[in-house]
Each structure stands twice: as structure tokens, then as C-alpha cells.
Simulated assay, not measured.
Amino acid sequence: MAEPAARPEGTSGGIVIKDDWPGYELDLFSYPAHYCGDLDCVFIPHGVIMDRTERLARNIMDDLGDHDIVVLCVLKGGYRFCVDLVDRIKSLSRNSDRSIPMRVHFIRLKSYLNDQSTEDLHILGAEDLSFLAGKNVLIVEAIVGTGKTMETLLKYVEAFRPKLIKVAGLLVKRVPHNAACLPDYVGFEIPDRFVVGYALDYNEYFRDLTHICVISKSGKMKYKI
């Protein structure tokens, strides 16, 4: 599927999935029957996501162990990744002489219509983040494209004067001009393809997929608004 790679200039440092990666055939995996015909392939299987998430949890433990952390989960797409990442950090803490006391807060960003990002970014649940003052903050996001949305969010969070901000992103897309705002912890660097599943949606559909998949043209048409 993908191979770990050294971090060339301008890349994210995650596991690099190459542009010509075709994905896995759908009939090799289980997925909801109501999405039959709506997907091209399984791009990243659930088990691979879990293994990579555990490695990211270890990296976070190495960097932030023994520090209180406020986890800022970006909804809706980031909730599965956040839950699994926090669970693995907790598991590591239970079996280590280092521990990370954590509290989790949820915010929601909305900037997509169909498969296109819009200029109109809404931040919900972030009206008062004054409790972040002096705290170590870990922002957990499912996917970073151009980085403009993350850049806007970081500026917003920085205004509340946290002690430290780190970002964990499950996916980073290889798109032009995204190197300026990359997450500190990256799961996978992927081609510029529209992916769904593992809580990533297309107009609120496909969040119930376990795997990360590529939506088909017919799927886009079927659920377009």
C-alpha cells in the first residue's frame, strides 16, 4: 500500500502514499451494502489506521509525557481519530511510568460544500476558549489540505494564550502551498483525492465507513447537494 519514507523537503513526515497507489479492491473488505457503487476503492484499511495511530500516540507520549494536555478535537471528521488516539495514549500511560493527564474539548469547523472547500469557515463551540490559557494544547484533525483552515484555527487558538500548541493530523494531502502549516504529528501523506470514511464525510454521508475510501463519481452525484 504505502512505504515509510524519509522526509524530503516540503513533505509532511507521515507515511507517504504515492500518487499512483490504486487502493485495494472493495470486495477484499467488508463495508456497508448501502454504499455499493459509491466507492472506487479502499484507500487505507482500518487496521493500518489503527497501527499508525498507536505509533503517533507513542510519539506524543515521548514529546509531551508528564504534561497536562487539553485535547481540542475538530469535529465532525476528527472524532474517530481523536477517540482512537486518546484511547491509545491512555493505554500507554497505564503501562508506563510517564502519564499524560488529559481533558478533551470539541469544536466544529465547517468549510466544505460537496467536494470543494469554501472561503466561508465557521468555528462552532469555540466562542470561549479562555480555559486554554497557559495550557498545553493538542489539536486533533482528520485531514489537512491547503492548510488554510488549520492556519485560521491556530490563529484563533493562539489568541487565548496557551503555553504550547501541537497538531495531530491523520491525513495530509499533497496539494500546492500546503507546506506552511503542516501538523506536528502526521499519520499519512496522501495524493489529492477526495476520501471518505473513518468519520470523513461527503455531505454527511460515509462517516459510518470503517476504512478510508475513495468516493466514486457516481457516489458524488448521488449525494450531491
Rank of each mutant, 00 (worst) to 15 (best):
V70W: 02
C73Q: 05
L75P: 07
G77H: 06
G77N: 06
D84P: 03
V86F: 07
R88M: 15
I89C: 01
K90L: 12
L92E: 12
N95A: 14
S96G: 08
D97A: 08
D97P: 00
S99W: 11
I100G: 04
M102A: 00
V104K: 11
H105N: 03
I107G: 05
I107C: 09
I107T: 03
L109P: 02
Y112I: 02
N114L: 01
D115H: 04
D115I: 04
D115P: 01
T118Y: 00
T118W: 00
D120C: 08
L121W: 01
H122L: 11
L124G: 05
A126T: 07
A126V: 10
E127W: 01
L132H: 04
K135Y: 02
V137N: 10
V137Q: 12
I139H: 11
V140S: 10
V140A: 10
E141C: 11
G145T: 08
G145V: 02
T149C: 15
M150D: 05
T152I: 13
T152D: 08
L154P: 02
Y156R: 11
V157T: 00
V157W: 00
E158Q: 13
A159I: 09
R161P: 00
R161K: 05
P162Y: 08
P162L: 13
I165E: 02
V167M: 06
A168C: 05
L170V: 12
L170Q: 13
L171S: 09
L171R: 06
